[in-house]
Structure formats: structure tokens, C-alpha cells
Design a protein around this nucleic acid. Sequence first.
DNA 1: GTCATATGTCACGTGCTTGTCACAATTGTC
DNA 2: GACAATTGTGACAAGCACGTGACATATGAC
Lengths: 229, 229
Amino acid sequence: MTRILLIEDEPAIREMIRFALVREGYEVDEAGDVAEARSAIADAHPDLAIVDWMLPDMPGVEFIRELRREEIYRELPVIMLTARAEEYDKVKGLDSGADDYMTKPVALRELFSRVKALLRRSRGYGEDESLKLGRLVMDTASHSVSVEGKAVTIGNTEFKLLHFFMTHPDRVYSRSKLLDFVWGQSVFVEERTVDVHILRLRKALKPFGADGMVQTVRGAGYRFSANVG
Amino acid sequence: MTRILLIEDEPAIREMIRFALVREGYEVDEAGDVAEARSAIADAHPDLAIVDWMLPDMPGVEFIRELRREEIYRELPVIMLTARAEEYDKVKGLDSGADDYMTKPVALRELFSRVKALLRRSRGYGEDESLKLGRLVMDTASHSVSVEGKAVTIGNTEFKLLHFFMTHPDRVYSRSKLLDFVWGQSVFVEERTVDVHILRLRKALKPFGADGMVQTVRGAGYRFSANVG
DNA sequence: GTCATATGTCACGTGCTTGTCACAATTGTC
DNA sequence: GACAATTGTGACAAGCACGTGACATATGAC
């Protein structure tokens, strides 16, 4: 029997997800806040946790960080739920140790497939969480980027930017979209600031001859692509 | 062009939603029952469907389940409309495979944002939207145009012009109409400027032998057509 | 405190885009 | 053919978008 711990404060959403997961044959434990979650996790030893971004007593991210500090829960697959669709949250969420994230409203079919995927992975051997695109390799766990084994020195903003690009390659994003996705909607930053970070990202990639991956599309924005040129 | 299939039996509501969506720039196909919906969906290949909970010949949920059984429509974003606000409906609706739901009366602004959100999500991870006409391929996501794999270098205005032509082929448009559609109604630009951009578009397409697609209709305007000549 | 690092903003220069014009070329009419 | 109307095309200037170095501020380590 597979146990899933669901931490979500909104009763309606929680009930909906619980109901759906039970229908799929999982055993579901619920918690409305972190306090409840702590005891539930100790009692139930779940195989997977679904955690809301916002919880009454502590941000979901904080709770995941707390979990990761403990040996036993270091491998526990966690799916983060967030109402905010910003990619920024995604990165922070992933960075914090969540294995996956989803935005609300939750598409249940998507949730099922993510749950299955995570369980499959955790049951096999915990392969590392690394993103590859062309010669570029990003390891979100260790927060590092490398080209053919050699480390790329990169700032935090550039890291987030690169993470977004690597998960959304070959598409043009306007400055304003990039600000939304990488910086977050609530942050007020000049659009031209994007240019500067693009520049810094290119500089960081240049020694590896990978700066061509960051492409300017005049009048439209920027694009990241594996095929340099 | 984004196509939305609207399945709703009440004419008043249907008309209202259709009107609003068209105003927002979507192409809308309508169906009053599941039978109509089936043929519409086969003809139109919509990018998103809005389905009423209660339909004359079959519950909307059933129809969605039916859709999900087919490979091609497994990923089709579906928004469910329901008059009943009960939680139960939500669960059943979402469980059936709808990606989102809304209760009537429909708040149009909310509908728009949900439509946008779902489209964004389905596009982000789904296939990219590419326009094809003859040997010409335009990929709006990567902001690129190509003929048989080879990239066509093109300015931004020419890109917009070509995009309009590719979505509206085989029809003659006067200079003034083209200005309205491509430049926007609020911009004041000489009509003859269109000629210059037509020229530039032809020049860009010439190396690929595709300049003949842009046709002059003396006294009337220009036309774009797949069959060169 | 000092220093280093990271980040957002600005100013400046450059090259490309774009709208406009003038003139050439084409088309249609008589 | 002559003529007018229409369209094609090269040139050009203004403006805009972008790259980039410099700077101010914030943050944190020591």
C-alpha cells in the first residue's frame, strides 16, 4: 500500500485531492498545517508528500527544508502545490528540496502522473536531479552548472534564469515574461535589467563556447537553444 | 489562431461567452449538444474546450471521459461549466478529466484568465504552435520562419505581416486593411509603406523561391497564397 | 568596522529597423 | 503608341533596440 501525505489548509482543495487519490488506490493522510503534518509524518511514514506552498503556520518551503535536514526524510518525494504560477516559485521550490511542483488549480490527471513518476523514481534508485541541454548540465540539487565536467561560475539570478531557459528551450520570451517567470510577478524591476543578466549569463558561458545558446530575437525577447549559432 | 470549442445548450449563455471570446481574439466553434460537439471537434481541432455540465444528450462529464479515452484528445484542456456549486460536482468534474471548472453565472474576466492559464500550460509542455503553408513554416513560439528547415531572415514587421498572411491566406487585403490588422488601428502610417514591407518580405523569401507567394492584386491590394504563380 | 560579492539601474554608443520619399517600372485604357 | 494610374525599388534619416561598462546599493563574511 502506498501512503501519501497531503498537507493543504484549504478544506475544499484537500478534500478534492484526497478523494481523487483514494479513488486511484492510494492511502491518504491529511494535514491542515505543519504541526499536524509533523505528527502525521511520524505516525504514517508516507511514501510521498504533497505540500501546499502556503500553510497557516509556516511556508511549505520551510517545512520541506526542515524535512530534508532529517536523514530519514531526505529521500521522501515531495510535490509542491502553488497558487502562483511563477517560475520563480518553482525554482525556489525545487531548490528547497521539492521534487516536483504543480500550480493550482490542480489538474488531477497531471497530479496522478507526477505522483506515479516520483514513486517510480524513488523506488528505483534515486537518480540525480540534473537537467541537460546540449553540452550544458545543471544540477539543481547541488546548485551547480557545468560543461563537460568543468564548472561554470554563475550568480544566483543567472542560475534561476538559466534554469528557466533550460526547462523552456527554443522559445522566445519577452523581457516582461522573463521578469514574471524568473523574478516573480510581484517584484518590480526594470525590463532592461533582463539584458544585464543575459549579458552576465553569456559572459559566464563564453569560456565554454556556449554563449551562443543565449539568442537575442530583436523586438521580441530572448531564446535559449541547444544548437548554437 | 487559437480555437476554442464551446459546448453549451443554452443559447443565451453560449452566445454571450462566444461573443466575449471572439472579442478576445479567439476563434470559437459552437455545439449545443454532444452530437454536435463530436463533429465539431473532428473538424475544428480545437486548442481548448469549454463544456457545460448538463447537456441534452449526455452529461458533460461523460463526454469528457469519452474524450480522454482517445489518444489525441488526452491533452486537450477542458474547462467545465456547472450551475451547481456543490463540492461534489467539482470533484466529479475534475476527476473526470476536466482541467478546471467554473460555476455559472460565468464571470467573463475569470473565464479569460482560466483559458489563458490552461493554454499557457498546455503549450508550455505540449507541442509548439507552428503554422504551415506550402513549404513555409512559421513557429511563433521560437519566433522563426523557415523553408525546408532553412531559416528565413526577416524583420519584425515582416514577421507580423507574414503571420497575418499565413493565418489569412488566399484572400485579398487592401493596404488600409493590412495597416489595420498588422500595424494596428491606432497607428498612423502611409499606405505606401505597406508596399515597402511587401517588397522586403518578397526579398526575404526570394532565396527560397517563395517570393511568388506574395501576390499583387492591382487596384485591390495583396494576397498570400500557397500555390505560387 | 572592512572587504567581497551580487544585483539593479543608468548612460552611452552602435547597428539595425522602419517609415518616407523620389523615381523607375509596369499595367491598363483609349 | 500615348497617357494615367498603380506598383516596384533604392536610398536615406530618424528612432529604437540592444550590448556593455560603470556605478550605487545591499548583503553577508570575516
